[in-house]
């Protein structure tokens, strides 16, 4: 009987330990939620966030369309906006293509023929299509034939700059951003339009941007 007692205890212990790992944390997690892209989200830091991208591109689009040298010409100018003209000199992580694309798409929608946008990102595909048309592999399409693809009248250049400051005691950090946008005459080399967007943010939380 005395020898039976440790076996029972050992058995009970084995049973308990076997049951323990099978417990799953079944608590309801934090569900993902949609947020307004134009307002501050739940995760906020000192970097460039969705509401900044939206506000910045929206402001530039409206400003550009109010400039008669660009948007009120008898012949709509050919404009190039792509990430090649965008530079990030700031400490913030930002996808320049996102900035350039949003500005270009919003302008394309709003300009409604007052500007013509040149696409250089897909130049290889365009050239390939032109070649097979001229080789007679496919017909000439329904629109027109041109000697070459479109030359650019104006190109958009943008530079993101920033200045950081950190309070060593409180670990409070702040970042000032200035983003300049310029439209350059690609023949004469002059500036036909320019505008800027600035903001300063402060936070104590350590947010990681990707």
């Amino acid at each position: 009987m005395k020898a039976f007692k440790p076996i029972v205890i050992l058995g009970a212990a084995v049973l308990v330990s076997a049951c323990a790992p099978s417990r799953v944390d079944n608590a309801a997690g934090q569900p993902s939620v949609y947020q307004d892209v134009g307002s501050a989200g739940r995760v906020q830091g000192v970097g460039i966030e969705s509401q900044d991208v939206v506000a910045m591109t929206d402001k530039m689009m409206r400003s550009l369309l109010a400039n008669p040298m660009v948007s009120n010409r008898p012949t709509p100018p050919r404009v190039l906006i792509d990430m090649e003209g965008f530079k990030n000199e700031s400490t913030s992580v930002i996808n320049l293509n996102m900035l350039a694309k949003r500005l270009q798409i919003e302008l394309t929608r709003a300009a409604n023929g007052r500007m013509v946008f040149v696409n250089r990102q897909n130049l290889a595909a365009i050239q390939k299509e032109r070649e097979i048309k001229r080789e007679g592999l496919v017909d000439g399409g329904t629109i027109r034939k041109t000697q070459a693809t479109a030359g650019v009248d104006y190109q958009m250049f943008a530079t993101i700059t920033s200045q950081d400051a950190i309070d060593r005691q409180s670990q409070m950090r702040q970042r000032y951003h200035y983003i300049s946008f310029e439209m350059v005459d690609m023949e004469l080399g002059t500036l036909v339009w320019g505008d800027g967007f600035e903001m300063s943010k402060a936070t104590q939380d350590n947010i990681l941007y990707r």
Binding site: G38, S39, Q51, V54, A55, D58, K59, M61, R62, S63, L65, A66, E106, R109, A110, A111, N112, M199
Partner: peptide, 24 residues
């Protein structure tokens, strides 16, 4: 185009101007 929120800083006991342009 769709309206978007733009920030305006109004200093204490002072005035600031909010400007918004249309596209049409």
């Amino acid at each position: 185009v769709e309206p978007r929120w733009q920030r305006v800083v109004v200093p204490a006991n002072s005035t600031s101007v909010y400007l918004e342009k249309s596209t049409t």
